[in-house]
Simulated scan of single mutants.
Amino acid sequence: MDGSATFPDVTLAILAGGQGTRLGGVPKGLLSVAGLTTMERLRALGSHFADMVLVANVPEPYARFGIRTVADVVKGKGAPGGVHAALGAARTPWVFAVACDMPFVTEAAARRVLDARGADVDAVCIEHEGRWEPLFAAYRAELVTRWGEALAEDPSLRRVLMSFRTKVLPEDALRAVDPELRALANVNTPEDLVRYGVVLPER
C-alpha cells in the first residue's frame, strides 16, 4: 500500500465486465480519447490511490497495462459480481469502483465521493437523473461477505446498496468540480463514440 497516496486507505477498482457488444465486441478499456486508452487514463488516476485492481474475466487484452487483475468470484452476476470481486481483492479499508469505459474520471471528481465517507457510512454514490451511479462509488471492503450473500438473489447494484448504509449525493455535489458531469460518462454505443470523441481500438 502507498501511504503517500492522495487516498491512502482506498483501492481503485476498475471493472472490465462488459464485452462492448453494441460497439462490435471490443474490449472497452481499449477505447481511446486523445491518444490514450481509457485503461491508460484510469491507470494514471490510480496513482492517487494506495492500490489498484482490475476486475476482468477476460484479462488478456489488458495484460500490457501491468495492473493486478482478479476475476469474478461469483460468476455471471454482472456489475454486482464485479464489485464483490473488487471488495474481496482490496488490501485497503475502502474501494472506489469505476467502469473501464469511463475516460473522464478525475481525482477531483473522485474526491467528492470519497470526502463524503464517514464512520456511519458503508458506501457513497451519486444520484444522476434519478439513477444511482454504483460504478462511480466508494465501498467499505468489509462488506464483501454480506455482498456475496446478496448475490444469490441476482440483485441490481442499487438493490444491494439499499441493504447497506449508503449515502447518496446529489449530482450538484459533483457539478461543483465537473460542471458537465463528464466523470460519469461511459461509452456504450456508437453515438457515445461521437459525443465524447472516442476512437475504437484497431482490430
Rank of each mutant, 00 (worst) to 15 (best):
D2F: 00
G3K: 10
S4D: 11
A5H: 09
A5I: 05
T6C: 03
F7K: 08
P8D: 11
V10A: 15
V10F: 10
V10N: 12
T11W: 11
T11P: 05
L12Q: 06
I14M: 06
G18R: 08
G18M: 02
T21Q: 13
L23N: 09
K28S: 11
L31E: 08
S32V: 00
V33I: 00
V33S: 07
A34Y: 00
T37H: 08
T37K: 03
M39Q: 03
R41L: 15
A44Q: 13
L45Q: 04
L45N: 04
S47L: 03
F49A: 03
V53R: 05
V53H: 08
V53K: 07
V55L: 07
A56H: 10
A56K: 01
E60S: 13
E60V: 08
A63E: 14
R64I: 01
I67Q: 05
T69F: 04
V70Y: 10
A71Y: 01
A71K: 14
V73N: 04
V74H: 06
V74W: 00
V74Q: 05
K75T: 10
K77L: 11
G78R: 02
P80C: 06
G82E: 01
V83H: 03
G88Q: 12
A90S: 15
A90R: 06
R91F: 00
R91N: 13
T92I: 06
T92C: 11
W94I: 02
V95R: 05
V95F: 05
C100T: 11
P103Y: 02
P103N: 04
V105R: 06
A108N: 11
A109I: 07
R111H: 15
R112F: 06
D115W: 03
D115P: 00
R117E: 09
R117L: 13
G118S: 06
D120N: 13
V121Q: 02
V121H: 05
A123S: 15
C125A: 15
I126Q: 10
I126T: 05
I126K: 09
I126H: 10
I126M: 14
E127C: 11
E129D: 15
G130L: 12
R131H: 13
L135R: 10
L135S: 02
L135T: 04
A138P: 01
A138W: 07
A141K: 01
E142W: 00
L143E: 05
T145S: 14
G148E: 12
D154V: 04
R158L: 09
R159Q: 13
V160N: 02
L161W: 08
L161M: 15
M162L: 14
F164Y: 15
R165W: 07
T166H: 01
T166D: 09
T166Y: 03
V168C: 05
D172R: 12
R175N: 07
A176N: 00
D178H: 06
E180A: 15
L181C: 14
L181D: 02
A185D: 13
N186R: 10
N186P: 00
V187K: 04
T189M: 08
D192S: 09
L193E: 12
V194E: 14
V194W: 00
V194R: 14
R195E: 14
G197V: 10
G197M: 04
G197K: 11
P201E: 09
